[in-house]
């Protein structure tokens, strides 16, 4: 947890999202407020239909709220124009999907370099950055492999590298472990955790409590509203106190 009060990387303010209208109106989100700080991993849990995926797509600029504000690195996505949003998505926001979404015709390094190249970085520099990012995550041995030459867990780790290459500090992960077995899923979470420990801000949507437990904060959604949230307790002595009573 950050000590001094830094500025949140992501701020959601009074966020609402209504799908449809009239009799078929569905309130997917009802007044969500959430700040995510650098170095913090926040997990969002809730039953299906509770609005957790809607929250993430809006935070990532893939969908627009009915009302409220989405502020990423001081830019309000709800008032920014399309060009600004696109730039923000290239430079500030990384998205990790359940099915990895790597481009099959590109190697791992090329996949990671792609957002940088799209952002105008020279191909050579983008490649150097990509390889550095992969090395930092112990994935450099995968640099020249194509997605179909990698396991699911490896692809997902490359996707995390792609989400965080460059100066991007916000990673949004939508059920990133959904298609992975338990141990591989854990290695993906460990990587996400270490990226947040290194200063990124992360939002993880999951229905798996064991993966949510890697987060600093777990936010529970129900019917589009935050009903509760947990903070990681600071005590390291948790295994001595209550255990003696049993």
């Amino acid at each position: 947890m950050p000590d001094q009060a830094p500025h949140p990387v992501l701020q959601l303010k009074d966020l609402t999202r209504v799908h449809g209208s009239g009799a078929t109106e569905v309130h997917a989100l009802r007044g969500i407020n959430l700040d995510v700080f650098p170095g913090e991993l926040v997990a969002v849990m809730g039953p299906s239909g509770s609005g957790k995926s809607t929250l993430l797509t809006i935070a990532g600029g893939l969908d627009t709220p009915t009302s409220g504000q989405v502020i990423v690195e001081n830019t309000d996505l709800t008032t920014a124009d399309r060009k600004q949003i696109a730039a923000l998505r290239r430079r500030s926001i990384g998205y990790v999907f359940q099915d990895y979404n790597l481009i099959p015709a590109l190697t791992a390094a090329e996949n990671v370099a792609l957002p940088r190249e799209l952002d105008g970085t020279s191909a050579r520099k983008a490649r150097t950055e990509a390889v550095a990012a992969l090395r930092e995550m112990d994935l450099d041995s995968l640099a020249d492999r194509f997605p179909d030459e990698m396991s699911g867990g490896q692809q997902q780790r490359v996707a995390i590298a792609r989400a965080l290459v460059g100066d991007r500090r916000l990673v949004l992960a939508d059920e990133p472990t959904g298609a992975l077995d338990s141990e591989t899923g854990e290695s993906v979470l460990a990587l996400l955790r270490s990226r947040c420990d290194a200063g990124a801000a992360g939002v993880l949507v999951t229905h798996e409590p064991r993966f949510a437990a890697w987060a600093d904060r777990v936010v529970f959604l129900r019917d589009g509203a935050v009903v509760d949230q947990t903070l990681r307790s600071q005590a390291d002595s948790l295994l001595t106190g209550q255990a003696a009573e049993r």
């Binding site: 890697w214 600093d216 947990t230 990681r232 307790s233 390291d236």
Partner: peptide, 23 residues
């Protein structure tokens, strides 16, 4: 249910942190 879930998930967060240190 929610008050228990809160407690249980928090315990998991703590155990997971200990585990991250123990791996």
């Amino acid at each position: 249910i929610q008050s228990q879930r809160h407690h249980t998930v928090q315990a998991m967060q703590d155990y997971t942190r200990l585990k991250a240190q123990a791996t």
